[in-house]
Write a protein that binds this DNA or RNA. Structure first.
Lengths: 211, 211, 211, 211
DNA sequence: CCATAATCGAGACGGTACGTCCAGTCTTCTG
DNA sequence: CAGAAGACTGGACGTACCGTCTCGATTATGG
């Protein structure tokens, strides 16, 4: 096709993972505010130039380095919607306690309020990427008969978005803003609240076509 | 008796408000990342030294400057718990859209993950200070007969904390992380979910003494 | 005359010497560059205001604090002009080795190149105040017959000035600029040179009226 | 063989001279006390970082900037030792009247009393570098038969050091400490004294092996 | 024996420069 | 060309002093 010349030195693929590893290691040791591009480069055995050739900024680099940590979140079948919710809340809380995520998640979000490209990057690499968890939980609950499916596909998608914001938002707020532990008692109470809310949504979307 | 030391020149109270005003104005114009201590000092007609004599860091200063904006949140009686919730969600969303808060709230929270003193500062100046809104909403709903009071005072306090984290967390996550609008449709759906959750909590705390 | 009223609180005389002592002590410990007005004030148990009420600047204060150290210079009669010169050179060198003088003499001179008032202050408090040493040495040598008196008083005064500049200048330059020790060998050689110069001046001013 | 590292971007040589030029220009305009690193950097069109990468302090920078001015000192052959001395004293006095040198020479010397590295720097860049003037004058006088050569090389070197300290010290002391003009009358009298001293040294080193 | 007035310790104030640090870019040479 | 090395501009950082100021408290003397 358009391929004219291809004789240049290709980018080292090994470097990519070395850089992301170094980024995470530095986040653990020094935290976001003390993480510098120079530090990461030195630790990865790479020149700063190489970093900037692949990521536009420190924030974008950290988003990629942290994003894959969120892939650890799973939704093992605990037999009931209540169990599934409690499980995912617990594993999310555990994730937020790790130094890599704790010090950098809010930082990149803060940065993103001024940088649209970064905002998109976060949404794609973290938010949208994890929404399947909510969808899976819903599907499983429907199969168990705990919930009914929404009458309209659009409504279902909006509900997934909402539930994701409620779970993620509440846990993050509890852990990082209120700065109180996301322990068993809190998780139980939160799950109770969420279950009641879900069945309420279920009935409402059943009867009315408002959503 | 209580007099220990009162001989030196007292701190100018006028400077305090000038600094906070300048901080807010600079946040509006330049946003958090471009706000510098030097800039604020110059704008307030004050020396940088004076800033550092009163606030230990840029973050602490911004917390104080922004905290009073949260006092604008009110809970006008709309006649029903549903209306009250929709009202407070709307006004919180509006607050989060203001440039002063949007660019700085997440930034100071991010900073606080590494600075315990700042974490306490945020909790006292913003979080605890606004929890009365949830309490008021609950009391009003109880008076209306929409909710019953919790059997134990400790349970009630924990419920207030939870509800605050759910509301604030969900709205903040929707607005700043998912970066989608907190519009009427979302608010209605969220309120539906929350109302269902509240009545569920109500019944649970009624029957069981688990909480 | 103009005296109308004199009922105010007088300045504490004790403070003066406490301040000068503190200044010297701080010079010994920290040296000129790290000596600050605040430090001296604190050490003297005095407010900064009090310092500035009495001395216009750090330099002026140090000049006064150091000036009296130069009063230690003496000219004990060693029986010959050669001995007298070697003696005064040695004691001057010893004085310049003390940390109070070493670190501050050049500093105040440097400052004085930009501050005429300070220049006058140094000249009066240090330079002119020690010229009597040269005069005494000359007088003594004349009484011994080692030198003859200058034919004109003005010539004598100019010679005293010159000799003072030569001795003080050479020793200071050796000690502080060349930064080599003013030891016995150097002193002997310098004294030989100066003696030869003095007799040369003596003959010249005898025969010619040029000076 | 000698190649150890030569892969990085080399330091700009243009920057060096731009910085030194800016330093001298600033010394002329503002004098030593008002010269700041920031000012010099801005004037040289260079970042402050670049200054600190090359010179450890303001003093070290000024030493280099001023040192080459001393290279202007020359010793034109005026036909006699007397003439040569009067000539070099005059040109040294002229040099000390320039604002660059007047305000900064004593300042760096003062600083050097606390900073051994700076002391060495001054000795090498200014003192040792100009001693050839004394050596030249001596050599020339010997060729003319005005002086004889010292019997031992070590003695000759010590005499050169001494003469340098006497000339430089006396002129500097007259000009900057006593703060009186180094005019023709003073120069004539000083030269008379020095000539007498030199012949005295000459005879002494001839007869005795003390030196 | 009180009123007056300058002094005192304390420390906040506006300024200015410091020397450090990092972001992001540029320039060199090597593979 | 990609990459390592590291110099470069630019700008904010937080600190340290300067010399001035504003306090309330402390002495002296003159009336």
């Amino acid at each position: 096709m358009g391929r004219v010349r291809a004789m240049a030195r290709p980018r080292s693929t090994a470097a990519d993972s070395a850089i992301l590893d170094a980024t995470r290691a530095t986040l653990v040791e020094l935290g976001w505010p003390k993480l510098t591009m120079g530090h990461v480069a030195a630790r990865a055995g790479v020149a700063k130039t190489t970093l900037y050739r692949r990521w536009p900024s420190k924030s974008a680099l950290v988003v990629d380095a942290v994003a894959i940590l969120f892939d650890e979140l799973e939704l093992p079948d605990r037999g009931s919607l209540r169990g599934d919710i409690e499980g995912v809340v617990g594993s999310f809380a555990t994730l937020l306690e790790r130094p890599e995520t704790k010090t950098s998640l809010m930082a990149v979000v803060a940065e993103s309020t001024r940088d649209p490209a970064l905002r998109v990057h976060i949404r794609e690499a973290i938010v949208q990427r994890q929404k399947h968890l909510v969808q899976e939980g819903r599907d499983r609950a429907q199969r168990r008969g705990e919930l009914t499916s929404a009458p309209h596909p659009g409504t279902a998608a909006r509900q997934v978005d909402l539930i994701f914001d409620v779970i993620a938002g509440a846990v993050v707020h509890r852990a990082l803003v209120s700065a109180e532990p996301v322990d068993g008692a809190w998780t139980t109470m939160f799950t109770e609240l969420l279950l009641g809310g879900l069945s309420s949504l279920d009935e409402a979307s059943d009867s009315a076509s408002a959503y």
